[in-house]
Design a protein around this nucleic acid. Structure first.
Lengths: 129, 129
DNA sequence: CTATCTGTTATACTATATGTATAACACAAG
DNA sequence: CTTGTGTTATACATATAGTATAACAGATAG
């Protein structure tokens, strides 16, 4: 299955769903136009309420990752680059700063972080057709 | 001032305090043995309740960054490498994975993330004596 | 010893976020 | 008309975050 949900995680379920979809897009498992399960179906599959799924879908829609068509379904949206790189830098800059700060206090070299990033890139891009 | 608090941030105040201290240690502004303001003093300075500061201090204590001495004060703790690198990798791995996933969907090259990380390293390490 | 400054604990209250639950509504497709 | 979409509206429970007040316990300075 695409999504693995951890109820005991500190991360909200709707964010886990959202991140799973984004990762699916990034890895190429989800292509432009692909249909997503309905809120009720996905909710039943992973054992959560339809509102929790709906919250994730709404978030993804606002972020431009998916397109919701009333009465028809939800689909991966063409043009995932809707959010610009600048937007990304602003959103993730603080997170990266926090990670680097902790890395330095733990005497972890920047090369380690470079390697971790390359690993994620290779793992996600490698699945692209 | 070392700490800048944004009340409208999505990040809790106590986490902002905690991250500020960690960043201070990472940048060398806070050295082993340095005394931190009391919970009441710091609370008054940044305009929050003493319990909010206390929560940040407790967290930092559990993480091994500071040492709390009852009736005496709170001090930067020797041996910040208490938490091992493995611990760090596990904690930050998921965050990095999410960041890389989004970067890929936004067609952002890995070199951009490398540069962002180097920038943070240089900025934080550059202040060390 | 006394006063003061530490952190600590306890309690209560508000606000927000998260998740569940149920029901009904609106619209497209068969 | 029936079914399957997403949508909206409530209501409820729980956890987190933050504030507020008060009192307690121990170290230190006077």
């Amino acid at each position: 299955m695409l999504l693995t949900i951890d109820l005991s995680s500190d991360q909200p379920i709707y964010m886990q769903i959202r991140n799973g979809i984004v990762t699916g897009i990034a890895s190429g498992q989800l292509q432009d136009g692909d249909a997503l399960p309905s809120v009720r179906t996905l909710g039943a599959e992973i054992g959560v309420n339809l509102h929790t799924v709906n919250k994730a879908y709404k978030l993804l829609q606002n972020e431009g990752f998916i397109e919701i068509q009333r009465s028809r379904g939800t689909f991966i949206k063409a043009g995932n680059a809707a959010k610009s790189a600048a937007d990304f830098l602003q959103t993730s800059g603080d997170q990266l700063r926090a990670i680097v700060s902790e890395a330095i206090t733990r005497r972890i070299d920047r090369a380690v972080l470079h390697h971790m990033i390359d690993h994620q890139y290779d793992e996600l891009e490698g699945n692209e057709p």
